[in-house]
Design a protein around this nucleic acid. Structure first.
Lengths: 149, 149
DNA sequence: GAATACAGTTAAGCTCGCTTAACTAAAAAG
DNA sequence: CTTTTTAGTTAAGCGAGCTTAACTGTATTC
């Protein structure tokens, strides 16, 4: 890095404001849907990582299998999740987001997205382009990083 | 905007991955400190917005004054917060992050920051510069936006 | 094929966040 | 000076998440 200190400061400043903003946003959104944060987090997780079994849920959230089972059960009953038998292992369950669940997450993302879009709209066209390029760089970097693991 | 669709897609893609990542990170961190998410959120809020009264806490988190009082009380007892009398209004309390509280938040931010820093480190020097510039643009835009309100 | 490990569920019980209701004390309004 | 708001606390009680413990059914292992 050429200017480690400057870059660090930039990163910190941005993350500080952005994380605060998005966390509060999600909190409010979850509340407005009537779901608890743990429930909501499970939907987010499934949206992000795709279908998985019960055991993954308990691992990822560092909760007991019992807790995962109970949380998932509520989400299934509320129609946000579908719990099917895994054909390859009849002990396991295959959890997938239902259409309703997917829409919920999309809606939440949309609201968060809108804030940032409004933010970007205050920039000049060329600055927007810069931002866009930078985000593409970062998003690609994330993908590469996750592939390596 | 020159390319609204493209820009939107970029924004969405980035936010999707970043929000997911940072939310999970904070969740784990909060858990590791022994604090609940609501408690942790209050510390975040104070870190971000500075000292405030009880009423602001209950408003911002959309909880009753009683709930705010109880949550704050725990944080005070744990040494993360200081609750003093407001000299200008003896009914009111002035809540401030303690040194310990500030360090906690810094530590959490640091971990989140580190991930993104590692991410940026995979980029070429010139790409890093692009990212840095873009984030400065965004951070400044946020400041302007908040000032206007 | 019997023993063991694994995936998930169910039940009991705890803690925690939250609410309402009743209360104290100070400020503002009349 | 009295009345009414405002800021916050305390107590009782409810619901949610989580844990441990006991259990069912299915794979694996030897």
């Amino acid at each position: 890095m050429t200017k480690p200190t400057q870059f660090s400061k930039t990163l910190r400043a941005w993350m500080d404001v952005f994380m605060h903003r998005s966390m509060r946003g999600w909190g409010h959104f979850a509340k407005s849907t009537g779901l608890s944060m743990p429930q909501f987090s499970i939907l987010m997780q499934l949206h992000h990582k795709g279908p998985c079994g019960m055991s993954e849920v308990s691992e990822r959230f560092d909760i007991s299998a019992a807790a995962a089972s109970q949380l998932v059960d509520k989400l299934v009953q509320a129609g946000y999740l579908e719990r099917a038998e895994d054909p390859t292992d009849r002990r396991a369950r295959l959890l997938t987001l239902s259409v309703k669940g997917g829409e919920l997450i999309s809606q939440g993302t949309e609201e968060r997205y809108r804030w940032m879009n409004d933010l970007a709209a205050t920039l000049s066209v060329e600055d927007q382009k810069k931002v866009s390029e930078a985000l593409i760089l970062l998003t690609n970097a994330v993908q590469k990083m996750e592939e390596k693991k």
